[in-house]
Write a protein that binds this DNA or RNA. Structure first.
Lengths: 372, 372
DNA sequence: CGTACCATTGAATCGCGCT
DNA sequence: AAGCGCGATTCAATGGTAC
C-alpha cells in the first residue's frame, strides 16, 4: 500500500497539540472548546443529573436559570437540562474523530432526555447497555422496584461510520459467547471506593470494571479517551492501566486532586497482557489459489458442500467450475445456493478417506506451516 | 394546591359507560378520545419502535432474518415520531385516573424519545425496568453487543400521586427479596407464540410472563387496564386470567380476530398457578473475564496447573497465552493436555503465598460477594 | 419409547477495503 | 465515489424426523 493510501483515511490530523494525560480544570463546554476538531477517539461521559446545576443552566432562550426563582418548575428545569445536554453533546461531537464513539451513562432521571439529545445531535446509537448492579441500594420505603441498574448509551458520530468494536476481545471475555447488552458488576465500594476524611470523595464514583470493559471493547492501545465529567478519574486510571491516552475535564479542585493522586498510583499493565486476541481480520490472508499452487489441493479435485448437494472442480488458477458456474470459491458457493454471499472456506469440503473436511482446514494448516 | 387536592378526594367518577373487555377497532388516539376523563386505572402501551432497518440481514448459515418491515413501524423523521408519541401520551394521560399509572415498552431506537415525552407531558417516572431476554437473537455480523434487552418505563400521572404498588406480592414472588428493576424472561416462542398459516400472527408478540408481573405489581383485581396498541391481545388475555377488566385498541382487523379468539380461550388462574408462572431466576454464571475485569486477577498474572507442568499468562480480555496457544481458560487447558475438553476453573491455579489455589476459588468469592 | 440430530427462528438500526 | 471482490459471522429454544 502506498503512502497516499495510508494518509487518505482520516480527515486532517489535529495541528494543535492535545493536552494528553492531563486534567483540564474548567467548565466542560469551555474546555472542550479549546480542543481541535476530530481529535478524540472515544468520549466517556457521566453527566450530572441532579437539576441543581446553578450557573450551568440556561433556558433555551439563553437566559440564566435561577434555581430559587419562583418560576422554576420542573418544565423549566427539563428545558434547562436539555439545553445544557445539547450544548455539551454538540461540542463533544465536534472534537470526536469521524470514526470515534461516545458513551454516556445515566439513570431514569436523565437518560431519556440525554438519549433523545444524542439522536437529535446527529449521533447514531449503536447499543444501549444496562449495568446491572450486583448489590444495589434497597428501596427502603417499599414503594417502587429496587433501582438496580443504570443505563449506558453507545453511539457513533454518524450513521455508517466505521467505529472500533473489538468483537473477538469481548467474546473471549465472555467465555466464547457474544457479549450481551446487559452487564453485571458490583457497585464501587470497599478498597476501590475513594474516601477523604472518612466519607466518600465523590457521590457517583463508577467501578473500574465498567470502564475496563468499555475501553477494551471500543478503543485500541494508544487511542485518546476524553472524559468531560472526570470526577475522581476512573476513566483516566483505567485508560492508563490499559495503555490508552486520556484527557480529563473537571471543575472542582478537590476532585482533581483526588484524581491526580489516584492516576499517579495506577500501574500500566504489561504490554503483552494488554494485547487482546488478534482479530481474525488481522490474521494473514491466504488466497485459495495459494492452496492450489502449493499442491495441498490438486487441480481437478472435486469439492462438495457438507451434505454433498453441490459439487465443483478445482481449476489450476484457484477458481471453481461447476455446471454453468465458474469463479471464486465464495462466488460459486453463493450462486449455487442462491445466497447473497458465502464463505467458501467453510462451505466447500474435500474428501479424505471417505470423510468430508472443510477446505478451511487446509488454510489453517498452511498458516501454521508458514507463520513463525 | 387547593383543598380538593389536599383532601385527596378522587375526582368525579365516569358517567359514560366504559367499553369493558372489548377491542375498539380504531386509531389509538381517536379511540382514546372517545373515553371519558380519569376512567382508566392502568395503561400498558407497546407502541411502534421506529426501527429504521436497512437492507436484508442474513444469518451465517445463509438464511434470511424476518425483519419487522410493517407499515405501522415507518415514520418519516424523529419529529414525526415525536409528534405521534406526544399525541397519544397526552390523550392517555387525560383518560388515566389521577392515581393511575402507565407502562411503555421500547428499545434503544425509540425509548429515549418516548421517555422524554413521558416527562414532558407531566407524568412522573417511578422506575425504568429492564426486560433481560434469556434467548435474544444474536448479532450475526459481530458488529455490536448482542441486543439482549428491552426497556419499560413505569410512570404515575403526576408527581406525588398515590399509585398502586403491591410491594408484598412482588417480594413474595422474588423469594422474599425486593423485586429489582431488571427482570429476566424468555422471548415469546413455542406454544405461546400465536401462529396463522404457519407463520407468526404478529411480529412483536410480548410474553405473557411480562404482563403478569406488571399487572400483578401495579393493579388490583377489578381494575381497568387499557392497551392502546393491542396487537394479539397479550394484555387482555393476562388481564382476564388475573381478574382485571381490560380495553384494547387496535387498527388491524386481522390482529383483532386473533386477539378475540385468544382472550375467549383464556382461563382465569388461581393464585398458585400465578406463582408458578413467575419462575425464579437462573443460577448466576460468571465468565472468567469478569474475574479479570473486577481486578481479582491482574492481567499478566501467571497461572499453572496443580502440578506446575503447564503455565499461561492472563491477558486483559480474559484469555490465556502460553507457547503457541491462546484462548479461553478451557480451550488452552484442553489443548495443552491434548484433551478434548477441560474445565479451566479447576485446572488452572494461581499462586498466593507460595500456595497454588484453583481459580474457581475466585469465582466462588465473586459470587458470594455479589449475590444477595 | 427414548435419544440424537437437524432445521427453524426471534423488535436487528449487522462489513471492509481497494479500485 | 460507487461498485465489487473477498471473506467473516450465531445463541437458545422449539419442533420434527430418524434411528
Amino acid at each position: 500500500m502506498g503512502v497516499i493510501g495510508k494518509l487518505r483515511v482520516q480527515k486532517a490530523e489535529p495541528t494543535v497539540e492535545l493536552p494528553l494525560d492531563r486534567i483540564l480544570m474548567d467548565d466542560c463546554i469551555a474546555a472542550m472548546a479549546s480542543l481541535p476538531d476530530r481529535s478524540i477517539d472515544m468520549i466517556f461521559a457521566d453527566p450530572p443529573y441532579n437539576l441543581q446545576l446553578g450557573g450551568d443552566l440556561h433556558r433555551p432562550d439563553g437566559s440564566q436559570v435561577d434555581a430559587v426563582d419562583d418560576d422554576w418548575d420542573k418544565f423549566d428545569s427539563y428545558a434547562a437540562y436539555d439545553a445544557f445536554t445539547k450544548a455539551w453533546l454538540k461540542e463533544a461531537r465536534r472534537i470526536l474523530k469521524d470514526n470515534g464513539t461516545i458513551w454516556v451513562i445515566g439513570s431514569y432521571h436523565n437518560i431519556f432526555r440525554v438519549g433523545a439529545a444524542v439522536q437529535d445531535e446527529g449521533y447514531w446509537i449503536l447499543n444501549d447497555i444496562v449495568w446491572r448492579k450486583a448489590n444495589p441500594m434497597p428501596n427502603f420505603k417499599g414503594t417502587r422496584f429496587t433501582n438496580a441498574h443504570e443505563t449506558l448509551i453507545w453511539a457513533s458520530k454518524s450513521e455508517g461510520s466505521r467505529y472500533t468494536f473489538n468483537y473477538r476481545a469481548m467474546k473471549t471475555l465472555n467465555d466464547e459467547l457474544q457479549m450481551r447488552s446487559d452487564w453485571s458488576f458490583p457497585i464501587c465500594s470497599g478498597q476501590e471506593r475513594i474516601k477523604r476524611g472518612g466519607t466518600k470523595a465523590h457521590p457517583t464514583q463508577k467501578p473500574e470494571a465498567l470502564l475496563y470493559r468499555i475501553l477494551l471493547a471500543c478503543t485500541k492501545p494508544g487511542d485518546v479517551v476524553l472524559d468531560p465529567f472526570f470526577g475522581t478519574g476512573t476513566t483516566g486510571a483505567v485508560a492508563k492501566r490499559l495503555g490508552r491516552r486520556w484527557i480529563g475535564i473537571e471543575r472542582e479542585a478537590t476532585y482533581i486532586e483526588v484524581a491526580s493522586e489516584r492516576i499517579e498510583a495506577a500501574l500500566p499493565l504489561d504490554e503483552s497482557a494488554v494485547t487482546t486476541m488478534m482479530s481474525p481480520k488481522a490474521a494473514p490472508k491466504v488466497p485459495f489459489g495459494t492452496i492450489v499452487e502449493t499442491g495441498m489441493l490438486v487441480p481437478g479435485t472435486m469439492l462438495s458442500d457438507a451434505k454433498r448437494r453441490w459439487h465443483a472442480i478445482v481449476r489450476a488458477d484457484g477458481s471453481l467450475q461447476t455446471e454453468g458456474e465458474e469463479g471464486s470459491i465464495h462466488k460459486v458457493g453463493a450462486r449455487l445456493q442462491g445466497a447473497p454471499s458465502c464463505n467458501g472456506w467453510t462451505f466447500w469440503h474435500y474428501e479424505e478417506a471417505g470423510k468430508l473436511t472443510p477446505i478451511d482446514a487446509l488454510r489453517q494448516r498452511y498458516i501454521l506451516a508458514t507463520e513463525p
